[in-house]
Amino acid sequence: MLPLIQYEIEKYGWLTVQEFVDIVAIAEMTPGPIAINAATFVGFRNAGVIGSIVATLGVSLPSFIIIVALSKFWEKYKDHPVMVAIFSGIRPVMAGLIASAAIFIAKAALFSEPLLANSGLAIDFRSILIAIGVFVAVWRYKVDPIKTILVSAAVGFFVFMG
């Protein structure tokens, strides 16, 4: 999605390259899906609150229309033997995709600190301890993920000092 955003933005001259890089960084660090955050930001920069709303609606509307149509079809045929067979093949593929994405996310979060300037590629034990703590909390003790995010934000504030 990001290459598409970059192409459209450059076409209309809405942002400079540096502004685009900044916006992607902000979209990643703020709550909400990255694509929605980026759209809201570009809209705001160019036309304020109305621009934000219009850009966000614009990026959401195709999804909305396609999914409303698709889910009608899915509801109707999901118990058909052909669909059951198809999804029996899709589910393990999704598990493989999710597992590889989890490894990608863990690698980015735990083994480098590009955001903190003081170190290069290194194992960060503070991040690893937080991640393990969260894993155990949700896996073993069924703690609400939202609580673990709030606690980790506070822990991060203290342990990443200096």
Binding site: M29, A95, I98, A99, A101, A102, I105, A106, A108, A109, L110, E113, L115, L116, R126, S127, I128, I130, A131, I132, G133, V134, F135, A137, V138, W139, P145, T148, I149, V151, S152, A153, A154, V155, G156, F157, F158, V159, F160, M161
Partner: peptide, 21 residues
Amino acid sequence: IILRIFNGIRAAVAGLVASAA
């Protein structure tokens, strides 16, 4: 301050996603 908080959140997301995966 934001970077420190975000580093904590990012580590939490790694743990959460690992558990879900």
